[in-house]
Computed example of a mutant assay.
Amino acid sequence: MRNHRNLRQIFALPILVGILSTVGLVAALVGDGWWDGLSWTSLSLPVLLYFFFTIRRQATSRD
């Protein structure tokens, strides 16, 4: 039996990552200080997710 998902379930996390990336880009342009920390944190999320899912995929392909 297949697990069907609606559009909201499929696109919720990618939209959230896109919004956080946009916040990071705007924060990098707007100011200094804690804005820099916000931009680094939110812009590092896609990179960390990439590494997480790459490592996870390699681990499952070895099984």
Rank of each mutant, 00 (worst) to 15 (best):
R2K: 10
R2C: 09
N3D: 15
R5S: 14
N6I: 03
L7N: 08
R8W: 12
R8K: 13
Q9P: 08
Q9R: 10
I10A: 12
I10T: 12
F11Q: 00
L13W: 15
L13Y: 13
L13F: 12
P14A: 01
P14G: 02
P14K: 03
P14T: 02
L16T: 06
L16A: 13
L16D: 11
L16M: 14
G18D: 06
G18T: 11
I19M: 15
I19L: 11
L20A: 07
L20Q: 10
S21Y: 00
T22F: 09
T22Q: 06
T22Y: 14
G24W: 01
L25K: 03
L25Y: 07
L25T: 03
L25S: 03
A28P: 11
A28V: 05
L29H: 12
L29M: 10
L29I: 05
V30M: 12
V30A: 11
G31D: 07
D32W: 15
G33E: 04
G33F: 04
W34P: 12
G37Y: 04
L38S: 01
L38A: 03
S39H: 00
W40H: 05
W40T: 02
S42A: 15
S42T: 11
L43R: 01
S44L: 13
L45F: 04
V47T: 13
V47M: 10
V47Y: 08
V47L: 08
V47W: 15
L49R: 08
Y50F: 12
Y50V: 06
Y50K: 03
F51A: 04
F52K: 04
F53G: 02
F53A: 02
T54S: 07
T54F: 13
I55N: 05
R56M: 09
R57L: 12
A59Q: 13
A59S: 08
S61C: 10
S61R: 14
R62T: 08
R62F: 10
D63T: 06
